[in-house]
Design a protein around this nucleic acid. Structure first.
Ligand SMILES: [Mn+2]
Ligand SMILES: [Mn+2]
Ligand SMILES: [Zn+2]
Ligand SMILES: [Zn+2]
Lengths: 125, 125
DNA sequence: AACCTTATTGCAACTATGTTGCAATAATAG
DNA sequence: CTATTATTGCAACATAGTTGCAATAAGGTT
């Protein structure tokens, strides 16, 4: 159903994502907000913000969930499908707006793809 | 250290991977072998077989670990870096030997990338 | 074949991420 | 201000994966 009521918790989380271009892992968010709200609340708010296409999510290399701001999405056109880049040195993750084209695969119908790139970010290079 | 002793358990797991070209999730393997060996043993054998470059691993869309046979790898040249394809209908996962080129990203040093493709497999198309 | 060394295994307990049910709380419409 | 119900906190649960340690068994040596 998405976010209906602009509660204090929703605002707090939205502000955090508006203050950075980086992706934030749920683990990091729980740690950062543990004195202010319950982890269940965090999971649920993130879910609702993704439904509203204000955030999008993906899995990092260790399988934990990350979220980042959406830019060109609306709730009925929610296709923030771009690669994500994780720095092996500082751990920072961000969205990269490059086009990775998946070639046709014989006899198979490609629907979408997740690309997770590892390397060194601008600050760690 | 890799596999040193060819135990019954190691042989069982190797046979399973040699009977198919498909990837197998650890979850599936634990289920299939639960009457024959402990899950800890399974995790540890898979780890050692990966060290030996007989298997390689990656994460599926839900974050669980999958393993598949290596083809052109040796323990000091273990770069089974190809995309993996997960069928949204039957759940089957396999290695696809296509080249997905990651374009250069300004100011960033790309080291490697994981590509997970979703779609319908030959049997489900 | 019996023996020794130590890699491997099973088990139980633990960690971590994520989910669920339900009662209490608080946004907001009227 | 009041009523409705979306949202929250909490505790309990689910599942994937890890760890320490004692028991077992490969496989080399005598
Ligand atoms: Mn993104
Ligand atoms: Mn593969
Ligand atoms: Zn960095
Ligand atoms: Zn299929």
């Amino acid at each position: 159903m998405g976010v209906v009521r602009k509660t204090k918790s929703v605002q707090t989380i939205l502000e955090i994502f508006n203050q950075t271009e980086e992706a934030i892992s749920v683990v990091e968010l729980i740690e950062r907000l543990k004195s202010q709200m319950n982890k269940t609340t965090i999971y649920r708010i993130l879910e609702r913000l993704e439904e509203d296409a204000l955030l999008h999510s993906f899995l990092g290399h260790d399988g934990v969930k990350w979220y980042a701001k959406c830019h060109e999405c609306s709730s009925h056109d929610h296709h923030d499908v771009h690669p994500h880049f994780q720095c092996v040195d500082c751990g920072k993750v961000d969205c990269v707006e490059i086009d990775v084209t998946i070639p046709k695969i014989p006899n198979r119908q490609v629907m979408n793809s997740n690309v997770l790139i590892r390397g060194r970010c601008e600050e760690c290079v």
